[in-house]
Simulated assay, not measured.
Amino acid sequence: MTLLLILVRHAKSSWGDPAAEDIDRPLNKRGQKAAPEIAKWLNSKGYIPAEVVSSPARRTLETWDRMAPHFPDTALIRREPDLYLAPPSTMLNSLQNCAADPVMMLGHNPGIAGFAAALLASPPDHPRFRDYPTCSTLVAAFEASDWAEVQPGSGKVLDFTIPADL
């Protein structure tokens, strides 16, 4: 059986309010535009999440809010407090506790870039993969019947894009 992971870094956020806590930063105009464009791209390729696991940060939740209208209203969303600024090991643990397929995970750098690189047997041929800019999206396949079986280095790249590519 093949499992699909859609790994999305949150869209571009605003630094307009210096008093705002990091977790409370909203998307800026560029991020508000990029998130639905990525969702349209995913939908056009048939990558439709059944389960969405997100950091509780405002910018990740707003990214999903802007993406959700472009998918069927069937995805279960779970706010995962441990994903806020999580390292790759925490992200893997969260993924291994998922139940549906495909899973979309929304997170932050530097953890998400490290997680994406660690999951794959070979990285995509894209100059921006290593730095994983805002709203970068990886679609990876895993030969497993359960997310608990997924291990580092076992993923195969199906697609990778950034907003500037669209």
Rank of each mutant, 00 (worst) to 15 (best):
F160E: 09
Y47H: 14
E51T: 14
Q151T: 06
T90L: 07
P69K: 12
P110S: 11
R66E: 06
P88E: 05
G46I: 09
N43D: 15
A86D: 07
E80F: 01
R58L: 07
L158R: 14
S136N: 11
S136V: 04
S136W: 06
N43Q: 15
N43V: 13
S122M: 12
Y47V: 06
D22A: 06
V8Q: 00
S136G: 15
A118W: 07
A20C: 08
M91P: 01
A100M: 13
A35V: 09
G155H: 02
F129W: 01
I6P: 09
K12D: 13
L83N: 00
L4W: 06
P49G: 07
A148E: 11
D125H: 10
R25T: 00
S122R: 13
A34Q: 08
A148R: 11
P69D: 13
A57R: 09
T137G: 05
S89V: 11
P133N: 03
A140W: 10
D17T: 02
C135V: 03
Y84M: 04
L85C: 02
Y47K: 08
N28I: 02
D22E: 11
R128H: 14
D17H: 00
P163H: 05
W41L: 10
A164T: 01
H108E: 07
P133R: 06
K33G: 09
I77V: 15
G31I: 01
D165G: 05
G107Q: 04
D131S: 14
A20E: 12
D73Q: 15
D24C: 03
P123G: 11
R9I: 04
D82G: 08
P26K: 06
W64T: 05
K40P: 02
R58W: 01
P81H: 00
M104P: 06
F71P: 01
A86F: 03
L83A: 00
M67D: 09
A35C: 07
A99N: 15
D17L: 02
P49L: 05
G31S: 01
S122L: 13
D65Q: 14
R25A: 00
H70D: 08
T161H: 03
P102L: 14
D146P: 09
R78K: 12
G114V: 12
M104W: 03
A35L: 10
A164V: 00
F71K: 07
K29G: 08
S14N: 09
D131K: 14
A144N: 13
S54I: 02
T90R: 11
L76R: 15
P36W: 06
Q32I: 08
D125T: 12
P127N: 09
R9E: 07
D82F: 01
R78I: 08
L85M: 07
A141W: 12
H70R: 03
R30T: 13
G16K: 10
A140E: 13
P127I: 08
Y132A: 10
P163Q: 03
S154W: 15
A50P: 10
S54H: 04
E149M: 10
A118N: 04
D22G: 04
S44D: 15
I38W: 03
D146I: 04
L3T: 00
C98E: 01
